[in-house]
Simulated assay, not measured.
Amino acid sequence: MEHRHVDAPGLAAPVGYTHAVVAGEGRLVHLAGQIATGPDGHVRGTTLAEQLDVAAGNVVLALAAAGGRAADIVAMQIFVTDLAAYRSARRELGRAWQRHFGRHYPATGLFGVTGLVDEAALIELMAVAVVGAGGAGVTDLDHVQVAAPPGCEAEARRFYGGLLGLAEIAKPEPLRDRGGVWFAVGGRALHVGVEDPFTPAAKAHPALRAGDLEALAARLAAAGAVVRWDDALPGVRRCHTEDPWGNRLELVAAGP
């Protein structure tokens, strides 16, 4: 069921918000308050409209990282340091809002405050979303598949099960005669499927998180696997290796 926006007939007509939102089934996502900070941590913009533009973009980025989109927001709290300035800038604020949220108006509250965490901040947005409710869009990842040549099962169990430490899961009966092996990866799955003729994937690859990446990389190297460290992403400890058939794999250190 998709989110349903409800406006009560006995209340004044809402402008720029909805009286109530009946959330569809999905995953509840609470977003931290977002002010108009850029990637450098400094507040951008000197007017309410300029800062709303940046803060709204930050909300969308944070929600996207959780697998959501603007239409998934069901509630929003807006904190401003100057209510009079907010009221006088509604036209500009509306344009900034629509650049990021379109004409999606969640259940919203507006609050005047004496100050925000950064002295330069004029506005802060705090949103709640329900992700994956209805619609025809993709809501999650079920599994990834890597290809392998016929007769791959023993090597798949040695590499993915023994070296990478993945637990094997039983293939459904109708698919067992196709060969290959399935493994659990967190709440998802990795399928090793048979392809004939087989060509290894040198570019496309799954990325797997490791609790102790250094130890796993050492175990792979000791077993004769190639381990290539990659520092192209700042703050991300990762390396690349190959499975027994030459498929590229990325291994990423789990976050704190």
Score class of each variant (00 low, 15 high):
His5Asn: 02
Ala13Leu: 15
Tyr17His: 13
Gly24Arg: 01
Glu25Cys: 02
Gly26Lys: 07
Val29Cys: 10
Leu31Trp: 10
Leu31Gln: 09
Leu31Thr: 14
Gly33Met: 14
Thr37Leu: 09
Asp40Arg: 15
Asp40Lys: 13
His42Ile: 13
Gly45Phe: 08
Thr46Arg: 14
Leu48Ala: 04
Ala49Asp: 14
Glu50Val: 06
Ala55Leu: 06
Ala55Thr: 11
Ala56Asn: 12
Val59Ile: 15
Val60Trp: 06
Leu61Ser: 13
Leu63Trp: 04
Ala70Gln: 07
Phe79Gln: 12
Val80Gly: 07
Leu83Cys: 06
Ala85Ser: 08
Arg90Ser: 13
Arg91Ile: 10
Trp97Arg: 11
Gln98Leu: 07
Phe101Ala: 14
Gly102Cys: 07
Arg103Asp: 12
His104Thr: 03
Ala107His: 13
Thr114Ala: 10
Val117Cys: 03
Ile123Ser: 03
Val128Leu: 14
Ala129Asn: 04
Ala129Arg: 15
Val130Gln: 11
Gly132Leu: 05
Ala133Asn: 07
Gly137Pro: 01
Gly137Leu: 11
Leu141Ala: 06
Val144Gln: 01
Ala148Arg: 04
Arg158Thr: 13
Phe159Met: 05
Tyr160Gly: 00
Tyr160His: 04
Gly162Leu: 07
Gly165Pro: 09
Leu166Gly: 04
Leu166Phe: 15
Ala167Glu: 06
Lys171Trp: 03
Gly180Cys: 02
Val181Phe: 08
Val181Asn: 11
Val181Ile: 06
Ala184Gly: 06
Phe198Met: 13
Thr199Trp: 02
Ala202Cys: 03
Pro206Phe: 03
Leu208Gly: 05
Leu208Ile: 13
Leu208Asn: 05
Asp212Thr: 00
Leu213Thr: 01
Asp230Asn: 15
Cys239Leu: 15
Thr241Asp: 12
Pro244Tyr: 03
Ala253Glu: 14
